[in-house]
Amino acid sequence: MDKKNIGRGATILTSGNSKKFKTGSWKNRYPSHSKEKCKNCMMCVPYCPEGCIKQKDGILQGMDLNFCKGCGVCANVCPFKAIEMKEI
């Protein structure tokens, strides 16, 4: 075996690579975001434990269901009831 191709033990040489590990299959319900009700207050973004609610220039883009575990925290912190949890 080529020794050069073996990494140093007990180290992870890249950062933030857990994005390759999808945790979306954990959920048994999913959040549904209504753009009409949403006032883009951004309350749900920092409260999401997965960090999977995406926003761009102050506009909410929706949830990345590849990572969402279906906890429902976002639906409960939303002051405008713009997020609804739905059964799969």
């Binding site: 390759k20 207050c41 951004m42 920092p46 906890c71």
Partner: peptide
């Protein structure tokens, strides 16, 4: 201002294996 705060660099990314609804990732990110 929450709108500016959420634009900051995310130093703890998705794909971790904490339970659904855990507070710890929210704390770490904050």
């Amino acid at each position: 201002i929450l709108k500016d705060i959420v634009n900051k660099k995310d130093r703890f990314v998705s794909g971790h294996r904490m339970c659904a609804g855990c507070a710890a990732p929210v704390i770490v990110r904050s």
